[in-house]
Design a protein around this nucleic acid. Structure first.
Lengths: 221, 221
DNA sequence: TAGTGGTCTAGACCACGAC
DNA sequence: TCGTGGTCTAGACCACTAC
């Protein structure tokens, strides 16, 4: 049996619904009827409800009592909102990291980044995605606020699907590597302002790139 | 029948559970068994599950698949985490508001604040709570990021119960009024830096006051 | 005042942990 | 292997909407 059989029904339904929404197969405003979805996903009502509840937490669905759930617009405004939140959280994390990092923490970041840069060739994309995640997670851990981390994680699931592999093209990979190096330097120097500044720019770049791409896809094809 | 009969079962159970956790009647780490809670709250399993899922979103409960739910520690660390998040969100909102506010928006904030200050006497507490909420909501609306607003709202439910009426004592009310006036001035002047600075201080004050109070309650009685 | 569909109930099913 | 308790199923109940 394939990967798609792992976990609870609710998890599988959540993932399929999320993908369907982000790919535009379920258009904005579409009514999500529980019994219908249960039939469709070959399950029953409770797992569907649970999945919808969690997707509401990710901002992809809106539920009103006794009225039901509908798909939220995954448009430029939504993307901007989410990236604005991620930006201020990333800045917060970077600043914290810069103020508390030990030489040992810095060495760990450098080790991850060294490995990242050994995979800049096109075929290294899977490695790059994993290492980029590890790099940022290391910084988050330094800040020690697991509630903020949860918010980032929730949004990351959505943005990861939205950006697919775009953010990890070889050209962008080199740009990311540069920004990571600059961030490490700022953290090592305990330069709080610079660390926040770099992390913020890093996010604004990602946001602009995604919005740009959404626009060209909307008009071009 | 009283207020406690309104809404869905899930809503009522959520509210009772939240209150029980924040008041310490359900201690940190306590196992939350669905069937047991269903019996206790005179309902059945699905509403309880739904309530637990939503409380997980508020950070009060932790759920792991096939393992169950347990109460998260509502301690100093938790409070600091939540207030750190609120602080950066409030700063974001205030900066945005300062950069986009029209004279009409400023006039609305002033009108709300005028009314607030007409209720500084001890008995005006209910009004103050309501007007303080309206004041902040007006600023949030100016920033136009409903996803960020949702995060604030979620945390606000928790912090409102934690602070009870403490933050609205007459002395603190005057301090709040001062900070609000300063914030309005910064917004009117489109002084982004100052607005962010004031909003941030406003939150740090609230956070410090709450942590201080938790400590004295923990030792004193 | 139906009809639609969200919400809830009772109980079966089955993953996990203890022995 | 067994017990506990989380997860799921089938269908009843009832709030909302349109007529």
């Amino acid at each position: 049996m394939g990967e798609s059989e792992r976990g609870t029904h609710a998890q599988r339904i959540r993932e399929r619904l999320r993908a369907d929404i982000l790919k535009g197969r379920l258009p904005m405003g579409a009514r999500l009827k529980i019994v219908e979805l249960a039939r469709q996903y070959d399950s029953s009502q409770m797992p569907v409800r649970e999945a919808l509840l969690q997707l509401q937490g990710e901002g992809l669905v809106r539920i009103s009592p006794h009225k039901g759930a509908e798909v939220r617009a995954v448009d430029e405004r939504f993307v901007r909102n989410i990236y604005d939140i991620r930006e201020i959280l990333e800045v917060f994390f970077a600043r914290r990291a810069a103020s508390v990092a030990t030489p040992r923490d810095v060495a760990e970041l450098e080790a991850i980044e060294d490995t990242y840069e050994r995979h800049l060739e096109p075929r290294g994309i899977a490695q790059r995605i994993r290492l980029n995640l590890r790099f940022h997670n290391s910084i988050y851990r330094l800040a020690g606020n697991e509630d903020a981390l949860e918010i980032i994680d929730k949004h990351a699931v959505v943005t990861r699907l939205l950006t697919r592999k775009h953010n990890h093209s070889p050209e962008r990979a080199r740009q990311i590597a540069e920004q990571h190096r600059a961030l490490i330097a700022a953290i090592a120097a305990h330069d709080v302002e610079a660390a926040g500044e770099i992390a913020g720019r890093h996010m604004r770049d990602a946001s602009d790139a995604l919005v740009e791409r959404m626009r060209s896809e909307a008009s071009g094809g």
